[in-house]
């Protein structure tokens, strides 16, 4: 059967991203932090395809080197959020009652900060390094994932196959792991993809605001921040990292959107 256009596009995109993460540094023409002092602020040309920055560093190389931290950071923080949110949501939805009440009120409090603000606060107070960025964004995503999983598992927990398992005398762990989890898996995949997109935005915004990874790490958001002062004369310093962010984040959103549509189809096949 011919693959639908959309899923081919999604697959292609995922492959590109994986390649970028794996090979970015090898395809890059120059090391990310190599100074070419005679080629400061050069526009895009044949030697430096996307131009150079104020230290004469090759913009293309920095973008390629920057792909890995940007994407790994996003994947790790989205993963952490989903990893924290899934058990919380499953347990709250399945057990209900007081436990649900307590867990969800805690989630409410975490939710009562705008995402970027909470992430910023945590990173600032814990110190700007990649691990803390992942932790901060993971915590920001935690209640959002938990709420989603809870709403699904709450609905599932009322279904009769869960009642049947309870009536049989199955252990809670079995019900959570074998009966409920497979049913939320497809939603988790969608949620994860959309969270990756959100994490790319958040990490980029954090580094743009100067919170997050510290120079000279070639994070894309940081490159935009540093390049902003040369906007008038060297717009490529801002434009190309922006384009990189746009490509990856739009692509991820499209993949997530595509997956969401697939999952929403009634009687649709299972994903993952």
């Amino acid at each position: 059967m011919a693959m639908p256009k959309q899923s081919r596009g999604a697959l292609l995109f995922l492959l590109t991203v994986i390649l970028l993460i794996a090979l970015g540094p090898w395809i890059a023409p120059y090391p990310a932090t190599e100074f070419h002092s005679r080629h400061i602020l050069e526009g895009p040309g044949t030697t430096y395809l996307l131009g150079t920055d104020e230290f004469g560093r090759d913009v293309l190389s920095r973008i390629l080197w920057g792909a890995r931290p940007t994407l790994l950071l996003a994947l790790a923080s989205a993963g952490l959020g989903v990893l924290l949110g899934t058990p919380t949501g499953l347990i709250a939805g399945y057990f209900g009652g007081r436990l649900d009440e307590i867990l969800m009120r805690v989630m409410d409090v975490l939710m009562s900060f705008p995402a970027l603000i909470l992430a910023m606060l945590i990173v600032v107070m814990m110190g700007p390094n990649p691990v803390n960025v992942v932790l901060a964004i993971g915590v920001v995503f935690w209640p959002r994932s938990a709420r989603l999983v809870r709403s699904v598992s709450q609905d599932l927990a009322r279904r009769e196959f869960i009642e049947a398992a309870k009536a049989r005398g199955e252990a809670h762990v079995f019900i959570l792991g074998r009966e409920l989890l497979p049913n939320v898996l497809s939603i988790l995949v969608v949620d994860f993809t959309l969270r990756v997109a959100a994490a790319i935005l958040l990490t980029a915004s954090l580094s743009y605001l100067g919170v997050g990874v510290v120079p000279p790490t070639p994070a894309w958001g940081l490159m935009v921040r540093d390049g902003q002062q040369f906007l008038q004369n060297a717009p490529w310093l801002v434009l190309f990292p922006c384009l990189a962010i746009a490509l990856v984040s739009v692509g991820t959103v499209l993949v997530g959107d595509y997956l969401r549509r697939r999952v929403a189809v009634p009687g649709g096949e299972r994903i993952a």
């Binding site: 009769e160 196959f161 049947a164 005398g169 497979p182």
Partner: peptide, 25 residues
């Protein structure tokens, strides 16, 4: 709260066949 052996003796068939079976098994 009852032992599994007792639960075995009493089984239940539900109304809604759509929801009674785990779609992933």
């Amino acid at each position: 709260t009852r032992p599994r052996a007792t639960r075995r003796d009493i089984q239940i068939i539900f109304q809604n066949p759509e929801a009674a079976l785990n779609p992933f098994h």
